[in-house]
Design a protein around this nucleic acid. Structure first.
Lengths: 219, 219
DNA sequence: TAGATTGTTAATCGATTAACAATC
DNA sequence: TAGATTGTTAATCGATTAACAATC
């Protein structure tokens, strides 16, 4: 839990949070161009939304600017990072060290961010590497590792036939949020938030819009 | 282009198409349980939407059932596959054969589907493997390969600093649809459909919903 | 036929946008 | 101060849901 008040948590749609991530990325880019003040119009242009939408989103998270002076770039970045939980390091375990799992463990894009995958778990003992600096451990050690290291987040990247079973192992171990790359759609109960990312579905979506010659709405 | 009439193409939202993919996956599962007739209520349960939503989605794509008898499982699967372009093999090139690119090239989930990555391209010559059955070729050969093999679709998985440049190479070569895994948001012009999938953003989204203890709406 | 389910229309809900008063 | 931009309210738009007549 971040240090902010419970009051500041708003029930928000997935799309709104996705936009906040994009604003954050745009602010990073504008800052690298030495912007000190950023206007809602700047962010609107950079992320292809309306300026009204930007101000509305900010307003919902009580991100306040300066009438006439826009938003201070540093402050804005801080506030967005705060909402997105980038105020401190977030540690993940990777469950399933196959193609996708291994790729994510090595993904350099996380290096600059506050996201870190600290260990992998797999049933295949040929993949085990307990002494690596990013260790791969047997599934049996998952619960213990999660407890000892106070891990709350995990990525699930196992084949379809074991997804449900592995989900339950993770939930039982106390994992609170799972990013699910398996092709099985998992349903979150009260205790675990699940975010499903189905690769085949993403490909199918692109194929549809290419076939029809239409353009999908911006996410 | 699929064999269907232009008239049958509806301008549709990304979310609607994502739901069609899910219905399709649910139908596959129900068929494997020997279902012959499928009701809108069955799909509603299986995909966590309302039965009204299912019928509305079908109605928009002129997928017709039988009053009283629901939808014939085989017919329904066919019609959904048709809309989603799974009526024939779709060939992709992979541009950027790093962690993510390689993982997708080897992803077994595509084997059963009508999605195939036929070749990879990379500037790093240590990655080149022109004689492999899934060849990795130099970037210089991309345009030629695309033309010769009539490729329309591609995955972009290069680092941020080269994303824009590589996008333009792909567009110029005649690629019509790009699934973009790079952290740079690309914008589609009239000629190329771009679908952006930002991994960091997906992680941030999960983190937000775990932190706030709220549950994201079903996509 | 009687009963159940579709297909579609109308009602509702939520998200986006426009407009503008507040104010820096 | 005059002018420009925010923050918020009201209007619009689009997507979801409810309801029910059509019909198998």
């Amino acid at each position: 839990m971040p240090n902010k008040d419970e009051r500041s948590f708003k029930m928000s749609s997935r799309n709104r949070i996705l936009r906040l991530s994009r604003y954050k990325n745009a602010v990073l880019r504008l800052k690298s161009l030495n912007f000190v003040r950023i206007f809602s119009d700047n962010l609107a242009d950079a992320t292809s939304v309306t300026a009204s939408q930007v101000r509305k989103d900010f307003s919902i998270f009580e991100i306040r600017g300066n009438r006439r002076g826009g938003y201070n770039a540093d402050e804005l970045l801080n506030q967005l990072n705060n909402v997105l939980g980038k105020d401190k390091l977030r540690e993940f375990i990777m469950v399933g060290v196959g193609n996708i799992g291994r790729a994510l463990m090595r993904y350099p894009g996380f290096a600059r961010s506050e996201i870190k995958i600290t260990a992998g778990f797999d049933i295949d003992q040929t993949k085990h590497a307990p002494d690596s600096d990013m260790p791969v451990l047997p599934m049996e050690e998952l619960a213990n590792y999660v407890r000892k290291n106070k891990i709350e987040l995990g990525v699930l990247a196992v084949p379809d036939f074991s997804a449900q079973e592995v989900f339950e192992i993770m939930a039982k171990a106390g994992i609170k949020g799972i990013l699910n790359f398996s092709p099985i759609r998992l349903h979150s109960d009260k205790n675990v938030v699940v975010s499903n990312l189905n690769l085949e579905t993403e490909f199918e979506n692109l194929i549809y819009f290419v076939n029809t010659g239409t353009v999908p709405a911006e996410e």
